[in-house]
Amino acid sequence: MQTAIKRIIFFAAIIAFWEIGSRLEFWHPLIFPSLSSVFSALVEGFQDKTLIYDLIASFKRLAVGLTISLIIGTLIGILLGKSKTADETLGAVILALQSVPSIVWLPLAIMWFGLNEKAVIFVTILGGTFVMALNMRTGIKNVSPLYIKAAQTMGATGIDLFTRVIFPASIPYVVTGSRLAWAFAWRALMAGELLSTGPGLGYTLRYASDFGRMDIVIGVMIIIGAIGMIVDQFIFQRIEKSVIKKWGLES
């Protein structure tokens, strides 16, 4: 409760400063529009449904991109976790690629797929894949040898051992990997849309910027941030917490 009160006071102060500052013209509205104009831009966007179409378009791309990146990431992670040779070769490459912001792939993606949805989805996939792969790999490597030994004395070997023990034992890392993959994919998607074609939140943001509509720009930024935070806090952190508890990883 304490934190909630602190937060409310903090946000109220920011909002008050923003609105009062704008009204007293501490800064020009073209440089930073007032809260009320941002708010009405948002209302207008939702009323004429443009923002709703943008949201749907963005989420469609994200759903496709994130799903593919989770599947590929999991498979690569399993390969790295199980094969020492793959880990020593491909693993090093994945580690390097993970530190490259996926948006830098866009020029190549545009060459390969054209300036279209495919290029944006490709960048989104790259955004999530590597972090998922690295977490999956760590998960598999960190499975307690005790679980494996216990399973072996109960007759589990090979694929059976993997699907019934090693993979489920690494679920906490799968959840963390998915959470980070979502965050990276979301950022990659917004960057991709910003530089590509619409509809989509990122596209609308650039379109508004071209017309000097900073109220819409800030409105869309708020939406992007709010979605990122809500999905992280209310979906992934909750799953992560319950998994950590169930898997006995609480300290």
Binding site: L146, A150, T153, M154, G155, P168, A169, I171, G248
Partner: peptide, 16 residues
């Protein structure tokens, strides 16, 4: 093999 059951010092139950 299943002809030998093992109980470890830690319970080694599968938490999931």
């Amino acid at each position: 093999g299943k002809d030998r059951g093992m109980v470890f010092q830690q319970a080694a139950l599968f938490p999931w």
